[in-house]
Computed example of a mutant assay.
Amino acid sequence: MTLTLWLTFLVAAILISVSPGAGAVNTMSNGLRYGVKRSLPAILGLQLGYGAQIVLVGAGLGAIVASSTTALTVIKWVGVAYLVWLGIQKWREPVMEAVEEDQSAISHRRQFWNAALVNLTNPKATVFLVALFPQFLIADAPHGPQLITMGTTLILVDCLVMLGYALLASQLFRFMTTPQRQRQMNRVFGGLFVTAAMALASFKRAA
């Protein structure tokens, strides 16, 4: 992959990550509640899910999933149900005074796997990657190194963007000084998760 081609791909990767979606909502929700440092497990979880999608597409299985209406539909509705569940959980989440220190380790694991499932159950990512990768692959060059370069670029860019989202959300923490404000914010993010679920439910693959 030439430098010019990689820079073009880098711009595409940045636009992909900056575009608001379920992953961004998840990151901002954690950033607001826990701050940047304690949001890292969720950010890493998102990258696990994203990385699995990249490997899936790179191995050629993504094309099979993308071409199978049944497989894509099943994945889509699992993702919809999961986002709705996250929204309900966020809506009902207790205020921060109720979060005890001895629960932090469990919370980290839960954050990680919740975030991983957000990206794993997103068929839009599979379809998008199937459409994106061929645009940048050089046909007469080994595909493995090119896919590794693109996959690494996507994950590193997404990590940085998600850190930015977490940092932005954490700045709102000082305004969340009362239980009432915290409940309101929990309900805002709960609503955003459900909105993301509705957007995913309305997703239709281009013919």
Results as ranks from 00 to 15, higher is better:
Gln89Thr: 13
Asn26Ala: 03
Ala116Pro: 13
Leu48Cys: 14
Gln47Ile: 10
Ile155Gln: 14
Ala115Ser: 11
Ser17His: 01
Pro179Glu: 01
Gly49Asp: 05
Asp102Met: 03
Gly164Pro: 13
Ala115Leu: 10
Ala66Val: 09
Lys37Arg: 15
Thr178Arg: 08
Val157Trp: 00
Ala207Phe: 04
Ala166Cys: 02
Val194Gln: 06
Thr177Val: 11
Ala22Pro: 15
Arg109Gly: 15
Ala166Pro: 01
Phe9His: 07
Leu129Asn: 02
Leu3Glu: 13
Met198Lys: 07
Gln184Arg: 10
Ile155Val: 15
Arg33Leu: 02
Gln171Arg: 11
Phe128Pro: 00
Glu101Trp: 07
Arg109Ser: 14
Val78Ser: 12
Leu44Ser: 15
Tyr50Leu: 15
Pro123Asp: 06
Gly190Ala: 05
Asn26Gln: 08
Thr2Cys: 09
Gly23Pro: 05
Cys159Trp: 14
Thr149Phe: 05
Ala63Arg: 07
Ala24Thr: 14
Thr73Ile: 00
Leu192Glu: 11
Leu132Phe: 04
Gln146Ala: 08
Phe189Thr: 12
Ala66Lys: 10
Gly49Gln: 02
Val55Ser: 03
Ile43Gly: 00
Arg183Leu: 13
Ala125Gln: 02
Ser68Leu: 09
Trp113Ser: 09
Leu86Pro: 06
Gln47Asp: 02
Leu48Val: 11
Leu44Phe: 15
Thr153Cys: 14
Thr70Asp: 06
Gln146Phe: 04
Thr8Ile: 09
Pro142Leu: 11
Val161His: 07
Arg181Met: 05
Ala196Ser: 11
Leu83Trp: 06
Gln184Ser: 06
Glu100Met: 03
Gln47Cys: 13
Val80Lys: 08
Val130Tyr: 00
Tyr165Cys: 12
Ile54Cys: 00
Phe189Glu: 12
Leu132Pro: 01
Phe193His: 14
Pro134Phe: 01
Lys90Asn: 01
Phe175Val: 07
Val57Arg: 03
Ile43Thr: 01
Val99Trp: 10
Leu86Tyr: 05
Ser202Gln: 10
Phe203Glu: 03
Leu117Pro: 00
Ala63Ser: 13
Thr152Asp: 05
Leu172Phe: 15
Ile75Val: 15
Val95Glu: 07
Lys90Ile: 00
Tyr34Met: 11
